[in-house]
């Protein structure tokens, strides 16, 4: 399980689910930006890394499909599921950066999606469940879809944990069940956590987001161990106030650093 090679024939899906509620407009810790802006940065950086991992020089290979959902008052599709090739060709804007003294154009796809609304997190997970199930049914041999949820964890609707667990148990491919990773960005402070194996002792929201996070499959666990050597057996896909490392490191895109 969780060993399917990601290829153009069997691409993988990464679906982002973003909290666009009022609380995400608050300042994020000591960063000079809102949580919503931070979320947008994580997303743009992750999509960029995924596209770069598919870049071979002469072409971009369609190893991944990516989509973004948001929730606040109900749920929205912020970016429909599309291949990395379409994403690379259609950014919403380009920003300049300098690499090795060369000025290059870096793409971005979303800006701060925050709206001044409630936090209907369960609506977001329900929408995600439907989107993920549709995708899995048309990609039965692919690596299982991965849902990356970014939130400050403070829902105002019904508790969404059971819906998230339903996604894990019901959305499957031949290679395993859907994986849910939670990136918890909070202004409450507390210790930074990366892929803990035990329930955090902090707030109720920490416990809930940890509880709905998938246990890392062996291949993900090994990569997490490379990135964070303190990762323990039984680690879950949960991060608290941590800068997510290159998410593409989790995925076996062909062979890794072999000739």
């Amino acid at each position: 399980m969780y060993t399917a090679e990601i290829s153009r024939t069997n691409p993988a899906l990464i679906l982002f689910l973003f909290d666009c509620s009022y609380s995400m407009s608050e300042q994020y810790g000591t960063a000079k930006m809102s949580k919503g802006q931070y979320l947008a940065n994580i997303c743009n950086e992750s999509i960029d890394q995924i596209i770069l991992s598919c870049e071979k020089g002469d072409e971009i290979r369609a190893y991944f499909e990516i989509g973004i959902l948001g929730y606040g008052e109900g749920s929205d599709i912020l970016l429909p599921i599309q291949s990395v090739i379409d994403l690379a060709n259609n950014p919403s804007r380009m920003v300049s950066e300098t690499l090795d003294g060369v000025t290059v154009e870096k793409p971005e796809w979303i800006s701060d999606p925050t709206k001044r609304v409630n936090t209907d997190m369960i609506a977001g997970f329900r929408k995600a469940k439907s989107v993920l199930a549709d995708w899995a049914s048309t990609h039965p041999d692919s690596f299982p879809p991965v849902l990356i949820h970014v939130s400050d964890g403070e829902w105002t609707s019904d508790n969404p944990v059971q819906t998230a667990l339903d996604i894990q148990s019901s959305v499957t491919t031949a290679d395993g069940n859907c994986l849910i990773l939670n990136i918890h960005i909070s202004s409450e402070g507390g210790d930074v956590l990366t892929y803990p194996a035990e329930t955090p002792t902090g707030s109720e929201h920490q416990g809930a987001l940890f509880g709905m996070s998938s246990e890392l499959p062996e291949s993900f666990y090994q990569r997490a161990l490379e990135m964070y050597p303190a990762t323990q057996v039984g680690a879950r896909g949960y991060m608290y106030n941590a800068q997510p490392e290159d998410l593409t490191k989790f995925f076996d895109i062909g062979t890794r650093l072999r000739g």
Partner: peptide, 21 residues
């Protein structure tokens, strides 16, 4: 000096380059 025609390829080349045994 590979023939680089796209920004994504240029960025990856500048960041990571190519490698071989």
């Amino acid at each position: 000096k590979p023939n680089i025609t796209r920004q994504t390829a240029l960025r990856k080349f500048l960041m990571e380059g190519s490698y071989a045994t």
